[in-house]
Amino acid sequence: MSLGDAFPADFRLKQIEQCLVPGAVLSLQVVFPEVTKNKFLVLVASPDENCLHFVVNSETNPYIKARAHLNVCQVKLDAASHPFLDHDSQVACHEVLPIPKNDIVAALMNDVSRYRGRISLAAKDDIVAAVKHAVTLSKVLQRGIISALESQYFPP
């Protein structure tokens, strides 16, 4: 149990809702076709009842590395600028992972330590640049993500 878990539920809910902004990094359990595991995710937009995320990986998958149009969409998150990371990692900006906002709130209400912090201003700028090159994302989705990220204050 973390200190945050000791606060009343209504207080935690208010704090959680204030943290769920583009650029937030969460550690959530994600169900992939081959496995379910905890992953770091960067929240990039929340246009409706779903929050849109990019997955943070320890390294770039060889399949992605071998394809220039996908590799250009991988953004380095350096551990030095992101204290919640144990090592440098990669944000996969070529594919969006939608997660219902209610599921995220429930996970954070259960364990507020799943909120890890926010990406740096430099990382935000790199993600915006990668999204502009992401041929795998529709133009509408690109504009929505860029607008959401650029509307947030990112401390230096």
Rank of each mutant, 00 (worst) to 15 (best):
Lys39Asn: 11
Ala107Gln: 15
Tyr63Leu: 14
Asp111Val: 06
Phe11Ala: 04
Ala130Leu: 00
Leu85His: 02
His53Glu: 06
Ile146Asp: 10
Phe7Ile: 05
Leu41Lys: 03
Lys139Ser: 08
Pro33His: 13
Lys132Trp: 02
Leu97Ala: 12
Gly144Gln: 15
Lys139Thr: 12
Gly23Met: 00
His87Cys: 13
Lys37Met: 10
Glu34Asn: 09
Thr60Ser: 04
Leu43Gln: 10
Val21Ile: 11
Leu141Arg: 15
Asp111Ala: 10
His87Leu: 14
Val31Asp: 08
Lys37Gly: 11
Asn102Val: 14
Leu97Thr: 11
Leu26Glu: 08
Asn57Trp: 02
Thr136Arg: 08
Ala66Asn: 14
Leu149Arg: 04
Ala107Pro: 02
His82Lys: 01
Lys132Asn: 01
Arg67Gly: 08
Ala66Met: 12
Pro33Glu: 11
Pro98Thr: 01
Asp5Trp: 06
Leu137Asp: 04
Val56Phe: 00
Leu70Val: 09
Ser120Trp: 01
Asp86Tyr: 15
Asp125Tyr: 00
Val105Pro: 14
Asp78Lys: 11
Ile146Pro: 12
Asn50Met: 13
Ala80Arg: 04
Ile99Ser: 10
Leu85Phe: 03
Pro8Trp: 06
Ala6His: 12
Asn61Asp: 13
Phe11Leu: 11
Pro83Glu: 04
Lys132Ala: 04
Val35Arg: 14
Thr60Trp: 05
Ser2Arg: 08
Val31His: 14
Asp48Gln: 05
Arg12Lys: 11
Ala24Ile: 03
Asp111Arg: 07
Val128Ala: 02
Ala129Lys: 10
Asp103His: 15
Gly117Ser: 04
Val96Ser: 09
Arg116Trp: 03
Ala134Gln: 00
Arg114Tyr: 03
Leu137Ile: 06
Lys132Glu: 11
Ala148Arg: 05
Tyr63Arg: 13
Val30Asn: 04
Pro155Leu: 07
Tyr153Asp: 12
Pro155Thr: 07
Ala79Gln: 12
Asp10Phe: 07
His94Gly: 14
Val135Ile: 13
Ala24Trp: 01
Ser120Cys: 05
Ile104Val: 11
Pro83Gly: 07
